[in-house]
């Protein structure tokens, strides 16, 4: 049975429908990411779960209980904000203990819990500092401890890493995932960064114009995107137009080259969508001209042009193929299984 259930959730601001018929079931202890571009409605969904926004229609239930009409301070959820939102007038320890204090927990029980929380986030000695004395990453960890201290039944994270430096971002996201698994707390994580979502989620909800396009595990989102939008938003996607010369064998012409995919295709013109890793260098295949080579460490990213269509793909550093020079002519093979084929208009 699922722990958190969102049923037919709708939200309109005035005449704008921000969230449309949103359905999601989250299992206990699951880490779910809401991923999408800004304005896709992901934050609104989170704020409805938190109790800051009332759904125009639909139902939210936790552990079988309907909480749709409950106010935020009655829901027992923890939330972390993009801007940290630590109370500036309180010390780190007071911030962490805030939820316990308003719940009337006596000081003698509060203090050990605060100490536990500070140890959990790895800042055991900073209890007496004020928020301004901490770095952004430390502040966000304190915010996490504050959210977790009252033992909430759910953790809501609203773009918690967006205000941080790249390096802190990666280490903090790993720490968040570790703590989440350690506590087994059901978590919803809102982000616009697909890499972040991929790295730490059990499942990802890709949102687009208020609608959940796909709800699936990270690998499935990447490898088997259910819509064109998901395919384009998650990862890099190369789009090529091809004329089908023989629908049965899948013989097609791309630019000036002809290749056979070995699978049946619709007749006429098709669009091929392919991830960078679907391409590999070969002696024959689609002719292309290299425009740019970018060294990324373990990987080498190559940009090329097939006639006028730009494509990008990756090579392993130190692999069998020699790294092509910019301006050189190459041939590419495509793995048919990694292709998304659509009839062109």
């Amino acid at each position: 049975m699922s722990f958190l259930e969102l049923q037919n959730l709708e939200k309109s601001f005035g005449d704008t429908r921000v969230v449309k018929d949103f359905n999601l079931n989250v299992a206990k202890g699951e880490f779910i990411s809401l991923l999408g571009p800004s304005g896709c409605g992901k934050t609104t969904v989170l704020r409805m779960v938190a109790g800051f926004e009332a759904p125009t229609s639909g139902r939210i239930s936790v552990d079988g209980k309907d909480i749709t009409r409950l106010r935020a301070n009655q829901r027992n959820v923890g939330m972390v904000f993009q801007s940290y939102a630590l109370f500036p007038n309180l010390t780190v320890a007071q911030n962490v203990g805030f939820g316990l204090k308003v719940a009337g927990v006596p000081k003698s029980e509060r203090n050990p819990r605060i100490a536990d929380m500070l140890a959990l986030i790895g800042l055991p000695d900073l209890g007496d500092r004020y928020p301004w004395q901490l770095s952004g990453g430390q502040q966000q960890r304190v915010a996490l401890a504050r959210a977790l201290a009252p033992k909430p039944q759910m953790l809501l994270l609203d773009e918690p890493l967006s205000a941080l430096d790249a390096k802190v971002r990666v280490s903090l996201r790993n720490q968040i995932r570790e703590i989440q698994q350690q506590l087994g707390i059901t978590t919803i994580f809102v982000t616009h960064d697909q890499e972040e979502a991929m790295a730490i989620s059990d499942r990802i909800v890709v949102m687009h114009q208020g609608v959940a396009d796909q709800i699936a595990a990270p690998q499935d989102i990447y490898n088997r995107p259910s819509t064109e939008f998901v395919a384009g938003f998650v990862g890099t996607l190369n789009r090529l137009t091809a004329d089908v010369l023989d629908p049965e064998t899948g013989h097609i012409r791309i630019g000036g080259s002809e290749i056979t995919l070995g699978q049946p295709l619709p007749a006429g013109r098709v669009t091929l969508s392919a991830r960078p890793e679907a391409f590999r260098l070969a002696a024959t295949g689609i002719a292309a001209q290299v425009t740019k080579v970018e060294f990324l460490g373990a990987l080498i990213s190559v940009a090329a042009q097939i006639d006028d269509t730009p494509v990008s793909f990756v090579l392993f550093n130190g692999g069998d193929d020699p790294v092509p020079e910019p301006g050189s002519r190459i041939h590419l093979q495509i793995a048919p299984s990694r292709l998304l084929i659509k009839q062109a208009a």
Binding site: G51, F52, A54, T56, S57, T68, R69, L70, R71, A72
Partner: peptide, 9 residues
């Protein structure tokens, strides 16, 4: 909407 908003305050 068929009900009060959660923020009845």
């Amino acid at each position: 909407r068929g009900g009060p908003r959660p923020k009845s305050g």
